[in-house]
Amino acid sequence: MKVLVISDTHGNIDRLQSILNTTGPYDAVFHCGDIEGQEHTIQEYADCPTYMVSGNNDWDSSLPADLNVTIDDYRFWVCHGHRYGVSLSPSAIREEAESRNVDVCLFGHTHKPYLETSRGLTLMNPGSLNYPRQIGRKPTFGVIEIDRHHDIHFAIKELED
């Protein structure tokens, strides 16, 4: 099982097609918000189950604020993260994820990649494909793979030019 995690595309999904063509296929796609009206196009490009949540810039969206999804017995909680102060610290979102008894929390908002596993919970922010804010400002995305032994693996990848 191979899962793509993206966030903060802000209406520009040109780079998504490149990722799907060069690193796919994927069995599922998660988008952690700030989609800005590209929901249907993302679903078409992905051509697999696509899970999306609204972000702080998705004002007229009918997308949910968060989602709980189970994939291959792993429990995922997906949100944008802005309601949990992720720009300051991951502590509040970690606390909320722990209270929800999930294995993986996917979020965005900061435009900076983040990956941490502690106490049986993995927090992953894939960064942004279009407006990265981390040092070096390379567009990033996340890949989650569940192998044949049911082990889960996480990676943050930079978009190749």
Rank of each mutant, 00 (worst) to 15 (best):
D8R: 09
H10G: 04
N12S: 10
D14I: 08
D14W: 14
R15L: 13
R15T: 11
L16R: 00
L16N: 06
I19C: 00
I19K: 08
L20R: 05
N21D: 13
N21R: 15
T22N: 04
T23D: 11
T23S: 15
D27A: 06
H31Y: 03
D34L: 06
I35Q: 00
E36Q: 14
H40E: 15
H40M: 12
I42Q: 01
Q43H: 05
Q43L: 13
Q43M: 11
E44D: 06
Y45E: 07
C48Q: 11
C48S: 05
T50L: 07
T50E: 12
S54L: 11
D58G: 05
S61P: 06
L63P: 03
P64R: 02
D66L: 11
N68F: 15
Y74K: 12
R75K: 15
W77I: 06
C79P: 11
C79S: 09
H80G: 01
H80W: 05
R83S: 06
R83N: 07
R83K: 15
Y84I: 05
Y84R: 02
V86P: 10
V86G: 00
S87V: 03
L88A: 01
S89Q: 02
S91W: 13
S91I: 14
S91N: 14
A92Q: 15
A92L: 15
R94M: 04
R94K: 11
E95P: 02
E98R: 15
D103C: 00
G108M: 08
H109V: 07
T110N: 01
P113H: 14
Y114M: 10
L115F: 12
E116N: 11
T117Q: 14
G120Y: 07
L121E: 13
T122K: 13
L123S: 03
P126R: 09
P126V: 06
N130H: 15
Y131V: 13
Q134F: 02
Q134T: 03
Q134M: 09
G136V: 01
K138A: 13
P139A: 10
P139S: 09
T140A: 07
F141G: 04
V143E: 01
V143Y: 12
E145W: 02
R148W: 06
R148D: 10
H149K: 14
H150T: 13
D161L: 12
